[in-house]
């Protein structure tokens, strides 16, 4: 419904020039733990434009999933957004009541999680679960709901969808289950789809199939996608722009070609060099040390203890967000 409503932008097809669909500004999230308040996100800012794919890359604990979950209001109970804005369609989503937010979740912004086995309920048939989403998102019931469910399953290339509706999740393969989850996510015709490591649990062949499907869906639905991943090859394959996260902050941000060809942050550079490339045999670059635990924050740049070019400034004070070429920024004292 929402996707067919009046568009906030006068040029819905122009990708570069129009106002962003989603603006995240200085988003800060804290978790209450036994060791006190822990800052999981620290002033995270990014834009998502209509129809584009933004990759958010990071390792475990970097805050990439927390970012996704704060947008969807799916944070655990001990987490709290303590600052910032999430603007969609001219409104700050953080100011909406839970009731108002139901008009956003699934309808404007939807999400696909990593493990399709846990996002589907094992005791209900596929048809019931897709149908539930259709009822909630579009108010359809009975034959209209079933017809729409079949359409959705067909849209994600599930063969013989009329038969598949009667299957339980355990009767389907991982790749098929992830397609069902995507169909459910698309039931409300969202404009933004957040994918949190949707292919990590899948075989490489099935991952490639799923990414291909996602590209097709993006085209068909005019989706803007936020792709949360730890895998730079998924970024290379899918994303228009990239944000690299480390220790709760976006360290570097820019066009995907720019990031691959001219990575400015030492962390991005090291990550790109530490992944084996097909057919190459040179020794891999390693990043010494361990990712920091967010519990004990040191002064200065959080990456400094592992950084090959850190100097005394880096250890002493937090780096500024340096603007480089065009859209490219790097949170680093030494960025050029």
């Amino acid at each position: 419904m929402n996707a067919h409503g009046p568009s906030p932008s006068p040029h819905p097809s122009a990708r570069r020039s129009e106002a962003p669909l989603l603006e995240v500004r200085d988003l800060t999230v804290e978790f209450k733990t036994r060791h006190g308040e822990v800052r999981a996100l620290d002033r995270v800012s990014f834009d998502l434009r209509a129809g584009e794919t933004l990759g958010i890359v990071g390792e475990s604990g970097s805050g990439k999933s927390v970012t996704a979950r704060s947008i969807m209001r799916l944070l655990p109970r001990n987490a709290r957004v303590t600052g910032g804005e999430i603007r969609y369609d001219g409104r700050d989503l953080l100011t909406l009541s839970d009731r108002e937010f139901r008009g956003i979740r699934g309808k404007a912004i939807s999400m696909v999680l990593q493990d399709p086995l846990t996002s589907l309920n094992p005791v209900f048939r596929i048809g019931w679960q897709v149908g539930e989403a259709v009822t909630i998102q579009q108010g359809l019931r009975g034959a209209a709901r079933d017809a729409r469910s079949v359409d959705l399953l067909r849209g994600v290339n599930i063969p013989a969808p009329e038969i598949r509706l009667h299957n339980y999740p355990h009767e389907m393969s991982g790749g098929m289950r992830q397609r069902v989850v995507s169909a459910t996510a698309l039931a409300g015709n969202p404009r933004i789809l957040i994918c949190d490591e949707p292919t990590t649990a899948l075989d490489a062949t099935i991952q490639a199939q799923f990414l291909n499907l996602l590209r097709g869906l993006q085209e068909a639905y005019g989706l803007a996608i936020i792709f949360i991943t730890h895998d730079f090859s998924v970024v290379a394959e899918m994303c228009d722009r990239v944000a690299v996260m480390y220790s709760g902050q976006i360290r570097e941000r820019g066009d995907v070609f720019e990031i691959f060809d001219h990575p400015a942050h030492p962390y991005t550079r090291a990550l790109l060099a530490s992944v084996p490339k097909l057919g190459e045999t040179e020794r891999l670059t390693t990043i010494p040390g361990q990712p920091p635990s967010s519990a004990n924050k040191l002064p200065g740049c959080a990456f400094a203890p592992r950084c090959p070019i850190a100097d005394s400034v880096c250890h002493a004070s937090e780096p500024p967000d340096m603007a480089l070429r065009d859209d490219h920024t790097s949170l680093c004292w030494r960025a050029q």
């Binding site: 075989d203 490489a204 062949t205 991952q207 490639a208 990414l211 895998d231 090859s233 998924v234 970024v235 290379a236 394959e237 994303c239 995907v256 070609f257 691959f260 992944v275 490339k277 097909l278």
Partner: peptide, 8 residues
């Protein structure tokens, strides 16, 4: 062929 791109 399922191996993803190393570069965009």
């Amino acid at each position: 062929a399922a191996h993803l791109a190393d570069h965009p």
